[in-house]
Amino acid sequence: MSGAGRASAALFAADLRRELRTGEALVPMLMFAMIVLVVAGVTFNLPEMGPDDRRRLAPGILWTAIAFAMLVGQARALLVDRDEERWQGLLLSPLDRTALFAVKWLEGLLLGLAVEVLLVPLTIVFFDLPPGIRWGQFALALLLGTGGLAALGTLLGSLTTSLGRGEAMLSILVLPVASPILIAGSMTTATLLAGGALGDASPWPAVLVSTLGLNLALGAILFESVLVE
């Protein structure tokens, strides 16, 4: 493994150990995601809804919960980095900025996926959805959408961190740009929940792939410009 690769792996391992020890990003994310589901269940009066209405509503609620939980988690993780002056160390290290972006993106993606491990079964239970769907394709759709959200969250989260701002500012910046991911994620998920396959959800899986590619490329190119100097 090259020097940059070793440094990236070391940073990733250190951040992962810290997260596993403290849960400073994951715990608020899980709490927040569950609260979104509960609030949706109460405000939309789910018990009065028929199965079709619940199935139509579930994808939107699921992606709203994912998006807000990721904003909370990524903003939290980046602010802790800043408050504990870890950013200064990272910026002084010889680690390439693109590699730093890749590590922070991967961490954001893993946080999002960890939340989804709890959130998806809860959504199925709360919304009384049929469990017999194509789980592999469902996981792929979640992976693509979460990857795109994590890329935007990493780039714009670092931007708001350099301003000393938290989740509110990050939401203002990320959510409008993330609207294609949220639309495509909801539409793909809706098709899969209705018993369809990824191919039936066209063109939405392609939108998820293209937003992931675009936002990863933007993040890799622009990350250096948003870092605290």
């Binding site: 714009l156 931007l159 910046l173 740009v177 622009l222 410009s225 948003v226």
Partner: peptide, 11 residues
Amino acid sequence: ARLASVIAIVG
């Protein structure tokens, strides 16, 4: 200037 440029490009 730097951060607003990033937002404009991403947007």
